[in-house]
Design a protein around this nucleic acid. Structure first.
Lengths: 231, 231
DNA sequence: GAGTGGTCTAGACCACTCA
DNA sequence: GAGTGGTCTAGACCACTCC
């Protein structure tokens, strides 16, 4: 018997038919049973392929109504969010890290607003610079809640960056990630070697453990930084 | 008999154990067979849950070696990339569109480099503005290959934006999407009502049909624009 | 009410990788 | 060589939704 057909093969063929407009946007796609018969596979295998297409936003599925080619390109893009160090090393550069400042302070108004916490909370506030081949790569401004992560009070963060330290020491259950462009603040400009007000690419991340805020970080990159994905 | 356990239930329980450090980063997770026995489910169901965790970057799986909690937070973030119009409407604003210019020209050097095409190719070059409640939302600078999409020569793009037009008229098989921060060009600044050099958030998208470039677009947003995701 | 996708099961074989 | 994940099958029942 020939090699069994894989759900990836089926997915590729279905994607091809969509791409070449065999099935134009909005068109109905045959039911799973019928596709299974056509491909000589079980319905579960076809289902797996269709699930993948649905997850990518290429098809819309409804019980009873059947599956259709998505008419809107509400496609999903996936971005990998690695550790800075890995990101730098993957780019073939030598990673460098330095701690610029460390202090235990109450949160500023902006931080309180973002984390929805009170002024009584205590935080470790860190400012760090990550480098690639001795050139500035990312300026990190981080707040760590001592309520959520008491151990942060006794960590010095001199050699290990807060990101890596937190990965090993602070659990979290939810996170929010945002990307945006901003004008470099004085601190950011100084650390990254840019003029104040230059465009910087900012990633902002918030994490919680249940309802308790754990950490807030603003990571600023020089404007050469790109986040890329393939669809 | 009790309700059958769902793969989502299993996933949630596994995520919980990872979050609370029952299984800390790097720890080995029991094999599928053993988990199946524990949850009273079939191995396929457990597999489905584990596949999901692996896709999110929470666990690393290897044949023979078994599954482990990912020690690096190489987590995957998913962003939805909708049509501008839907994005604006979803924000509860009234969508507006206007075509600023349209011309058929050979590609500029930058465009040729990005699309890896020759100077002989002909393109439609469009500049458009998308608005939310009459305020600038996105400035779009688009190039459409007439080799790949001949019909674009006879479309006027006065009322329907190129994005929506292309969705309905131009198939593609591959796409690349990039995000970055940049300084507003004169065109961008004028269209968005910003000062030249202000930070803008740029999305750049390239698509191909097989090896043939289809379109290149640069979409610039005012710095208030954010791309957000939850993990 | 009926049709379609969503999911679970039980069993099987394969492929990769570690020892 | 052996253990673990990757995948396929055949069958079944359920849940949602359209008519």
């Amino acid at each position: 018997m020939n090699t069994r057909i894989s759900w990836r093969d089926i997915r590729e063929e279905l994607m091809r038919r969509i791409a070449v407009r065999d099935w134009p946007p909005g068109a109905e796609i045959p039911g799973e049973e019928s596709l299974a018969a056509e491909f000589g596979a079980s319905r579960a295998t076809v289902n797996r392929a269709m699930q993948d297409l649905a997850a990518r936003g290429l098809v819309e599925r409804k019980r009873k109504a059947g599956s259709r080619v998505a008419s809107n390109p509400v496609r999903e893009a996936r971005f990998v969010i690695p550790l800075v160090r890995h990101e730098v090393e993957k780019a073939g550069a030598e990673y460098g890290y330095s701690l610029l400042s460390r202090e235990v302070v109450p949160p500023t108004g902006i931080v309180r607003a973002r984390l929805q916490t009170g002024a009584a909370a205590r935080f470790v506030h860190l400012r760090c610079l990550h480098m690639a081949d001795r050139r500035p790569w990312q300026y990190e401004d981080r707040w760590i809640s001592l309520d959520a992560v008491p151990a942060a009070a006794s960590a010095d963060f001199e050699t290990v960056g807060p990101n890596e330290w937190l990965v090993a020491n602070a659990p979290f259950s939810n996170a929010e990630y945002a990307f945006f462009a901003a004008a470099a603040s004085e601190d950011e400009a100084a650390a990254l070697g840019l003029a104040v007000g230059s465009p910087v690419f900012v990633g902002e991340r918030l994490t919680w453990l249940g309802e308790t805020p754990v950490t807030l970080v603003r990571m600023a990159h020089p404007p050469s930084h790109r986040v890329v994905t393939r669809l």
